[in-house]
Nucleic acid binder design. Structure first.
Lengths: 215, 215
DNA sequence: TATTCTGCAGAACGTCCGTTCTGATTCCTC
DNA sequence: GAGGAATCAGAACGGACGTTCTGCAGAATA
């Protein structure tokens, strides 16, 4: 890719800036005005060079039809926006998602990267982990856990559960065994919890965990 | 948001389709042609309704200045693309990033969500965790750890280190104490490792951890 | 039935805007 | 200093394009 003149750099910068504000491209005369150029032919001349060198693409005779090559949509990724409904901590009830939460409630939100997004991004919500009680699930203070809201889990799935008798919130692998539920820590060295099925409220399946490590 | 007539739905669909191909919007006459409408005034009429109902936004007197509200860029997020260089496991040397890796080497890549992206997204790379030896850092098999490549760490930072004497890769908090380095597990219940500084190769600082939990 | 509203057709107006032509200025090369 | 390429200025042309005005037909309303 050949080097670029300062005039062309100036125009390219303006194109980017203009496009982020509005979502369409400036006309040639707008470029002329913004870059302090005294003729539209100069703008056309430099746009022609920018296109020859592969920086932009133009469609002849069409207004505002400039595209910045390899930049328009390539670096942008469609992500799922997950509402962060609150915190999950050992002794506190798990926040329950209301219908409003998914439809742009006033919650904080979190962008889940595509690699971690399940096929079906509906009914997802996130909780911020408070404290160190989820260590047996390899989850620690400050982590974000992404959950799919559901009331019934299948065996082996990791769930966020609330135990009303013990007044405890926990993240465990779920196994229904007759009348009882066995809750297995992800860390196989730690002991399972076995409680009557009626004493377990499943709040959702764990879909992903993410953690930002402090500097 | 009021209901939408079939004509308006047709136009809206065409706008989306047109915009995904090119990156600009159609002119009124192009909409007219594509939707089989016999007058530009009809297009204008329906666009006016679409704008009144909040589906699109138009800028008067400007060609192709239609924006689809809440859809154009809102769901798109600029993310940092991190190359996944390989795996980190207890007994295997840590893959070293080459210069080529950052500049679109043929590695798998991973999109880091903006919430987890540090101010400076340079020199970042990712490793896939193999095995269960990093449990004391709350990291387990299959996790992705994001690292910033550096040879020297500051006290308290979590680093990926290779211990040549022990032939061991590990994730620990780093503390330089005179001639020795103390490597602290994130889990405070586990014992630290203390080794001569010359026996520690720091490969990078841990920036983020993410995990997709199996269904 | 009279009235209003909605959706559409056709045409014309005026401006927006890409394009092009001519010529000047600057800068390098030989 | 002559020749040539690169860059720019000014103006004009013509098509692209948004806008508007008039009118018509059917549905809804009263």
């Amino acid at each position: 890719m050949p080097a670029i003149s300062s005039r062309q750099q100036q125009i390219l910068d303006f194109l980017r800036e203009y496009h982020t504000d509005r979502s369409y491209m400036p006309s040639i005369r707008e470029i002329q005005l913004a870059c302090g150029i005294s003729s539209t032919s100069v703008v056309d001349y430099n746009l022609r060079l920018l296109e020859r060198d592969g920086y932009i693409h133009r469609s002849p005779d069409i207004s505002r039809a400039i595209e910045i090559v390899g930049e328009s949509e390539a670096d942008l990724v469609e992500v799922a926006r997950i509402p962060v409904l609150g915190a999950i901590a050992a002794g506190e009830p798990i926040p329950v998602p209301e219908a409003a939460a998914y439809a742009g409630g006033d919650h904080e939100s979190f962008a889940l990267p595509p690699e971690l997004t399940p096929r079906d991004p509906d009914n997802l919500y996130a909780l911020r982990v408070k404290g160190y009680s989820m260590i047996d699930a390899f989850v620690t203070d400050g982590d974000i856990v992404v959950l799919r809201h559901t009331r019934d889990a299948h065996n082996g799935e990791m769930v966020a559960a609330w135990l009303p008798m013990q007044e405890e919130a926990t993240l465990k692998h779920f196994y229904l065994e007759g009348e009882n539920v066995r809750l297995m820590p992800a860390n196989p060295n730690m002991a399972p919890i076995i409680v009557p099925a009626s004493d377990v409220q499943v709040h959702g399946k764990v879909v992903a965990v993410m953690r930002r490590v402090a500097a």
